[in-house]
Nucleic acid binder design. Structure first.
Lengths: 338, 338
DNA sequence: CTGTTAGCGCTTTCAA
DNA sequence: TTGAAAGCGCTAACAG
């Protein structure tokens, strides 16, 4: 019923080897022959069986994308970008969502990507050494998104510097007591931002001659609700902070909500700055640090595909790319905009 | 380097056929033999090549999931749920994101799923007849999510009734002038909700003896920003509505924002109700209609897998499942809660 | 219960 | 520039 390469060969009056060559655009096929093959294939509505091709060639034309969540803005953006880049290159996307701690353990234990991908993309996961090893054992190029490691392709932002720029900005507005709403750095599902953004926060305080205060660092778990609860705790402190830095816009939304609920004004009573610059943030007039998510995803995907295409077993000279972030100052952190 | 079925056979002292049977859990394998095979496979860290298996068996153990967007709550939830259900069943997920009109056209033209999936899941797309045909030509079971069509497996909610329940609720609160913030029913990337939810809105008005007013129906494009702009237009009407029904929570968020911006109170001056019950909505104290997204996704995925497993070429007797929705009344639509 | 063998539908030498 | 033929690593009869 569905045409196979033999049907095409018969119809075009050539061998199956020639059909294969012609359809894949290989050189050394006479133009006239190629035309006949193309026509025959079109007539029969033929597409090659990917599995037969993969078995014969050893190439899978498939990339595995591993994410810890799909339901967060950053990761949804990554999935969307990677999917379209792969599709454009004729690659399939195999999506692996870790979900929870158990799912993560199972994933690295079973390694369901074995024998089915030409390359792997890992989005913003803090990986342990054993997990890096498991990845390495795949003997396939691996691209890291949002983190960096020697010996791997990667695209990321400088989370430390970006966070620091946010807090520097608050300091420049005269704030001396600045709260942090962050992620759990001990979370087994840990992804990379919480560690680095907290470091950037602490760096900025130190540089401003401000002492760190554990009370000022509250967990918001990267959710709106968590951000709101963290803000509630911060606003309840005896010596209330006058500014809050949230490690994600979503947590900042929760903070904005809580501040309003408490009858306080933004930014007069409490200034707020987030991280990401999701589309919603402009609407919320939220100051934030913009990170180029699609750019990072596209960058590492493109380089991974190049590596795969070249069948290179060596990394390029500059495997680690760091993309710039941008401080976006809006009404939540300054009264009169510059 | 990586073990093949022959290596396992040799190590276990059996034929490759026996290895194949033992590892797949087929009957008629002696327990002792099975054990030896399992041990040998484990020792060699063997996994079968999926491509060889697929080529030989004709089964792909892969399901294609087609979504119009990944970056919206509903679809992210769907992807996440489907992915884990498939993984659990040992299936791979091939994700297809249509993205835009061009991507959609290309998709149905090229049909990149051909020869690579055992079944297809379509999420909330309004499909044209030609597109249904293209799907049918795959000769694979198709599950619809969020819509229904004769001859297809489906899981959905009753969007008309659900929307109507929301508007009925507003009517019951005494509202007589109720605005609609909806999606574009003429959008070529149309997904199903806009049509049905608008119908439910109109039904409710009619049932209440209220006349439809085109001015009261504004497009919010299913985004927060679009919702805000639609609300701005509605609040600017000479005869301002006292209540708004948004076809999604996200548009409702935009409306809430605009109402506040206009210095009006919710719900005293303008009541608001959304649709979906995203997690954020509870935090926003937004009344809404809860729809069970994960349940719908799980339901249709499970039934699709059954259909695939049974190699059934007939649909079950009740292919179309409709899941219940629930009116969730919060502070945005009533002053004192019941 | 187990082994033998013929494919599955391609890609890739190797010859011509 | 083209064709013949040998696999790729499995599954699925079929025999025993």
């Amino acid at each position: 019923m569905v045409a196979s390469i033999e049907d095409v060969a018969r119809r075009a009056g050539v061998s199956i080897a020639t059909v294969s060559r012609a359809l894949r655009g290989l050189p050394d096929v006479a133009a006239a022959t190629r035309d006949r093959v193309m026509t025959a294939a079109a007539d029969l509505n033929y597409v090659a069986s990917p599995f037969a091709a993969r078995l014969a060639s050893g190439r899978t034309t498939t990339v595995g994308l591993v994410v810890p969540f799909v339901n967060r803005w950053f990761f949804a953006e990554v999935i969307s970008t990677v999917e379209s880049a792969l599709r454009r290159a004729g690659f399939d996307l195999l999506l692996y969502n870790l979900g929870d701690e158990e799912g993560r353990a199972r994933f690295f234990d079973v390694m369901p990507m074995r024998k089915r991908v030409d390359g792997v993309l890992i989005a913003s996961l803090v990986l342990e050494d054993t997990e890096f090893e498991a990845l390495t054992e795949l003997s396939r190029p691996v691209g890291l998104l949002g983190l960096e490691r020697h010996g791997f392709l990667s695209a990321r932002i400088d989370d430390v510097a970006a966070a620091r720029s946010a807090v520097d900005h608050l300091v420049a507005q005269g704030h001396r007591r600045i709260g942090l709403i962050g992620g759990d750095t001990d979370d087994p599902m840990a992804f990379t931002p919480p560690l680095h953004r907290r470091d950037g926060y602490r760096d900025a305080l130190r540089a401003a001659g401000l002492s760190a205060d554990p009370e000022l660092e509250q967990l918001g778990y990267f959710t709106v609700e968590g951000g709101q609860e963290a803000a509630r705790r911060l606003l309840g402190l005896a010596d209330r902070p006058t500014a809050l830095f949230a490690e994600s816009d979503e947590m900042a939304y929760g903070a904005l909500r809580e501040i309003r609920r408490a009858g306080l004004r933004v930014p007069e009573d409490v200034a707020v700055i987030g991280f990401d610059d999701q589309p919603l943030s402009e609407l919320m007039d939220l100051s934030t640090v913009r990170q180029p998510v699609a750019d990072q995803a596209l960058d590492v995907t493109t380089r991974l595909l190049t590596l795969i295409a070249d069948a290179a077993d060596e990394l390029p000279r500059d495997p680690a790319v760091v993309l710039p972030t941008e401080l976006v100052v809006r009404g939540s952190s300054v009264t009169s905009r510059p």
